[in-house]
Amino acid sequence: MKLLEISHLKKNFGELEVLSDISLDVEEGEVLAILGPSGSGKSTTLRCATLLETMDQGTLKIDGKTVAEDKDGKAVYVGKKELHKIKESIGLVFQNFNLFPHYTVLKNIMDAPVHVQKRNPEEVKKQADELLAKVGLTDKADSYPCQLSGGQQQRVAIARALAMNPKILFFDEPTSALDPEITAGILKVLRQLAEEKTTMVIVTHEIGFARKVADRVIFMDGGVIVEEGKPEDVIDHPKNERTRTFLQKLEGEA
């Protein structure tokens, strides 16, 4: 079953065309990595999929439910109530974590499930403890975000997103605000999630990440999808010139 379907997505910021024609699908249990240089439109695609940005044109379906349909060349969204319901199916982990600084780690994880989803606090607490164990931060439950390292904060952010039981989990450059040594911890969590068949869309420019976690890779540049396929094909044997240049540049840096 397809959990995410985007077709013919177009997006402009004023005069500037950011996305010209993006179509992509994500199957249940699949891990998709979106690669590309900065300014390629990969983050904007993800922000449209997580409803932080509205599309100008195109259709969007999440978990089989229509979010926006193309009518006469304009994307028309469904009503507020339905949007709110659909939002429950998605989770997002930000580049800058965006934890709530005035809440403890535990409250960051528990607050939305208890106050937005109105779930039983005891049940949520049990789940939060499990999630903290999963990301290796059981002893930090009562700490505040400012007392944690960047890597620890990002793992809390992942736990916070998972606590909402989303059907599909998005990552917006989850390691680009972190030191390279720390990314290993995040990678470990992501691999574990992949093994558990969590559906994930990861926007990144860490090739290693894509290779180790993703089932499928999309390479974007200049607002279009340039190449798509299995990681070993796209990363190790790129067909497109632009993909090759990008990969070479990254290898040069590393």
Partner: peptide, 17 residues
């Protein structure tokens, strides 16, 4: 930071919350 609003939005908080 605008990220606080975005995090709240993705987590489904209402405007008042």
């Amino acid at each position: 930071p605008v990220g606080q609003y975005e995090a709240a939005s993705v987590l489904g908080y209402s405007k008042g919350q």
